[in-house]
Write a protein that binds this DNA or RNA. Sequence first.
RNA 1: UGGGGUAUCGCCAAGCGGUAAGGCAACGGUUUUUGGUACCGUUAUUCGGGGGUUCGAAUCCCUCUACCCCAUCCA
Length: 750
Amino acid sequence: MSEHKDFLRTIVEEDLASGKYEEVVTRFPPEPNGFPHIGHAKSICINFGIAKAYGGHCNLRMDDTNPTTEDTKYVEALKDAVEWLGFKWEDGVRYTSDYFPKLYDYAVELIKMGEAYVDSLSEEEIREYRGTVTQAGRRSKYAQRSVEENLALFEQMKNGECKEGEHVLRAKIDMGAANMKLRDPLLYRIRHAHHYRAGDVWHVYPMYDFAHCLSDYIEGITHSICTLEFENNRAIYDWVLDTLGLTAHRPYQHEFARLGINYTVMSKRLLLELVKSGKVSGWDDPRLPTIAGYRRRGYTPESIIHFCDSIGVAKANSTVDVAQLEFAIRDDLNTKVPRVMCVLDPLKVTLINYEGSEVLDASYYPEDVPKEGSRALPFSKELYIEREDFSLNPPKDYNRLTLEQPVRLRHAYIITCKEVVKDAEGNIVEIKAEYHADSKSGVDTSGIKVKSAIQWVDAATAKIVEVRLYDRLFQDEAPQSLEDVNPDSLHIIKNALIEPAVILDRPDERFQFERQGYFYADPVDYTDQNPVFNKIVGLKDSWSKKKKIDTPILKPQVKNEQIEGEVSAMSVAEQALFDRYTGELQLNPEVANTLARDAKLSSFYETALGECDSPIGLANIIANEVARELKEKEVRELKFTPMQIAQLVKMIEDETISTKIAKQVFEEMVLCGEDPTHIVEAKGLVQISDPAFILPIIDEVMAKNPDNVEKYRAGNTKLFGFFVGQVLKATEGKANPQVVNALIEEKLKH
RNA sequence: UGGGGUAUCGCCAAGCGGUAAGGCAACGGUUUUUGGUACCGUUAUUCGGGGGUUCGAAUCCCUCUACCCCAUCCA
């Protein structure tokens, strides 16, 4: 993690520091109705990570309130994912279904309080009564049922005496609420379904909005962290807990943006479609962004965690470039994994001047990886190299084998091409080459300069392996449907050749096939008879990139033009005020506009005007500073009065205080409502304009930052603000900024 | 369209009135028996647009724009 804290950690730290909670308790609450994907990994890292970082704990809870979609196989997958990532949950796995009895009791309590009712409208009617985003809904006539009737009905619902859809339990909140979620949300619905865990005892099941907040409360959760789409639900979350009076040590919900990655999909629906349609082999298909998929592909838990840490946590919807994920796995594997040689597309090479065979000792790790180990590498007359590593008509900057250009066989000798053998169609089928006996790796005395070293295998001892190459599953950067799948996302090479140590010694399960990428022995299909390797990720390849640059694609640089919308017209009264402000009072039109359009502001202004005859100064501070305070408050809720603002403005006008100090004083007034004159007096905030006092401070600042002085004099005039800021800070804001500016300018000249 | 959110480099993302962090990507260069790694350097006079307040604004005020979420008996 970088030094900065994300907003969630900032909140947690504040809550801990203020004593709101003694210990942080979080939870990861998936619904067991699908396989977890890397978006869940982000949530896991956040929830478990925060708990760990602040010495608290995190629960794993299955949010299983919908019996028709949930299944044990998903809870297993969820547990696996958390475990594989290396996190530990507190005690056993929790289940919302375990709280069903408690939840039922809370519902009964709400009914008794008159805060919930049994509604018997049909599903369509409920929808209709809910209204639309612009129109208020209307309440069902059943909302008038008595507490007794509601109690009896709810009991019948629980006992299975009602049909599905016949009744629901709803909270009695507000059918006209602007927040649609608050229009008497459903709390319970009837389901005569078998619950994978609770069995058949229940006939009513709680809805998310009712169950989740209470489950959090029951578990003593402090910070209930979820994704952005639940922002509107927070109002119900708070309503339920507050209405039930569960306010003592209650949790609060905080939302962050879910993870998106380009060229893939994260929606449960699309993932399920992919699996069901057979476009992928299963939930653990290595092309899928599921945890099981990444795991099978060969990603390490460390790489996933580092990735999640690297992308940050914020509230802006965003799509992370898949390159960032690929970086995380390369970066992790680079220092961990042995290097071996594998030839994917073999081209035979016969060494015409070599006889017999030998065994080379080759290190598994390059010099820059601090790990030890080597393997025996057989070498003889017949070898295979990668077809790509030989060229008859080499492009510019081609570093590999050509008719004229020798190349080193990694860990072995330098070879020179002598003859190219072609078949009837003109395809190259074999290279006849000479090796240089005095060029053996490590004891090279040949003096031959080569431009690169290439991988190879010994024909006699190489093993045949299956290699599965994966490309992005979708061809569209932001795929919308299965239409966008990449038809070419899987390439299976049945006859790749690999050096024997990989198969015989099995020094690891992940390897770097030199110059190609990182590969993983498939945990499912690998057998001794048919070894299978999955390509995790390729190496960075600046060569193939370079070749592509020959045909540069010029993106048309279209800058979206901003459309200026129309400002709504002022009412007659507002217009009259505006005219007076700009005319008689000489206010800036913008300030006048702000004041005139806001009744709270204009009345505040009018009152203050009676106390002080500097209309412009008053208007500025009211339209800017006071406006902020009045955004979510009424005038009577303010601690300060128009008269006090008038006093403040007077002090600015007679230069007792600078505008900077005025801001400070204002902050104080907002909090305590004291007279500005008192605040100024108590804190000694009188402005200092005497150069004799300021000059030494400037000297000090300049002496402390000689490099910045130099930079400024070299032309970095942006640093001017830095110096002013430093001097102001040193005087706790009391120095007259205008005087400081003038003095610094003078000082910095030479 | 009511309400709730969000906008800082190609992609993430710090910043909370005083020098526009960092990572990924890209581009140069050095080292290299992996066209890998590592290392060095370059890449935002500008923060969605326009105004305003201020000595000083990405940060405060006004306003406009764009995008996301909400009208499942899903979570």
